[in-house]
């Protein structure tokens, strides 16, 4: 169960997306997220779907890897879909039983929300599949770079270093948690049943060993970093240098095109020039 965490699971395929500047990818992801939420009509949403589908193909990451991500949040999707379907009561009544009515407006909203959540998951997964966590932290460090002029240079470096280390140790700690859980279970610990309070209490024998071993690790890691001549961000170089290249400029152009298209579609739709009526 714990192994399903896909946070920061890089999937190397050497596609164009993998080789893009991580800063650019991060900004584009933010743009896409914004557009997912301002795409308020069928046309712009369809346009976005097309666009993200294209990206998925370009990324060369197998589609089933993306699906795995969606599976893990199927419950959340189902919940928001039903809630939306029940609570929105605009449009014509489509279905009515007892005192529950489902309207065309409700269905429309539910479908929209589902598609939005899925697009959101797909596009952020795409970023983590095509970008190593180190590149991501580099992107964040670089985008926060202007803060250095406010005398926050050290804080920015420290933040980036902390993120790198956290990402590196998540799988290690997950593995360790599983080991400790199994060890406690084999000693007869019951972790999965009983009232909530009891279950919370039964977590203590897991959390305490985990905490102690994390301190041990932190101490070891600090020594290992010192042995590798680490002394903060000053004078540090990067093996990977990112300079915006032709590839990146083309992507910027495409993204601007995307932004413009969605704005145009939204305008045309609200002006009633294009419309779709399924009801």
């Amino acid at each position: 169960m714990l192994k399903d965490i896909t946070l920061g699971q890089y999937y190397p395929t050497n596609s164009v997306l993998h080789r893009l500047d991580p800063r650019l990818k991060l900004i584009v992801l933010f743009a896409i997220i914004v557009f997912i939420f301002i795409s308020s009509n069928v046309f712009s949403l369809a346009f976005l779907i097309l666009f993200i589908a294209l990206f998925i193909i370009i990324s060369k990451v197998p589609f089933k890897i993306y699906i795995r991500n969606i599976k893990s949040i199927v419950l959340i999707i189902a919940l928001t879909t039903t809630l939306n379907a029940f609570y929105v009561d605009t449009g014509t009544v489509v279905l009515k039983f007892w005192n529950i009515t489902i309207t065309s407006g409700g269905i429309e909203r539910a479908v929209f929300m589902t598609i939005r959540i899925i697009l959101l998951i797909l596009s952020s997964a795409m970023l983590t599949y095509t970008t190593t966590p180190t590149e991501l932290t580099y992107a964040i460090e670089s985008l926060l770079g202007p803060l250095k002029h406010l005398g926050l240079g050290n804080a920015v470096h420290t933040l980036a270093m902390m993120m790198t280390i956290a990402l590196r140790f998540i799988p290690t700690l997950v593995e360790e948690t599983e080991k400790i859980m199994n060890a406690q279970k084999s000693r007869g610990a019951d972790l999965e049943s009983g009232p909530l309070l009891k279950r919370i209490k039964s977590l203590l024998p897991i959390l305490i060993p985990l905490l102690i071993s994390s301190f041990r690790r932190a101490y070891d890691l600090a020594e290992a970093m010192e042995c590798r001549c680490y002394s903060g961000g000053k004078g540090r170089q990067r093996m990977k240098q990112f300079k915006l290249g032709v590839r990146d400029y083309i992507s910027i152009f495409i993204v601007i095109l995307l932004i413009a298209s969605i704005l145009v579609i939204n305008y045309l739709y609200s002006a009633g020039i294009i419309y779709l009526n399924v009801w």
Binding site: G8, Y10, T132, P133, T134, T164, I165, L167, R168, T172, R216, R217, D220, L221, A224, M225, R228, C229, Y230, S231, G235, R236, Q237, R238, M239, K240, Q241
Partner: peptide, 27 residues
């Protein structure tokens, strides 16, 4: 496990030379 700091092998190996401030090509 307690000596590796990066999530990709080559990025981890680069950590020392990066700290020493060598040029990217040299790293």
């Amino acid at each position: 496990d307690n000596q590796l700091i990066a999530t990709i092998v080559e990025e981890d190996v680069a950590f020392g030379p990066e700290n020493l401030g060598f040029e990217p090509g040299e790293i």
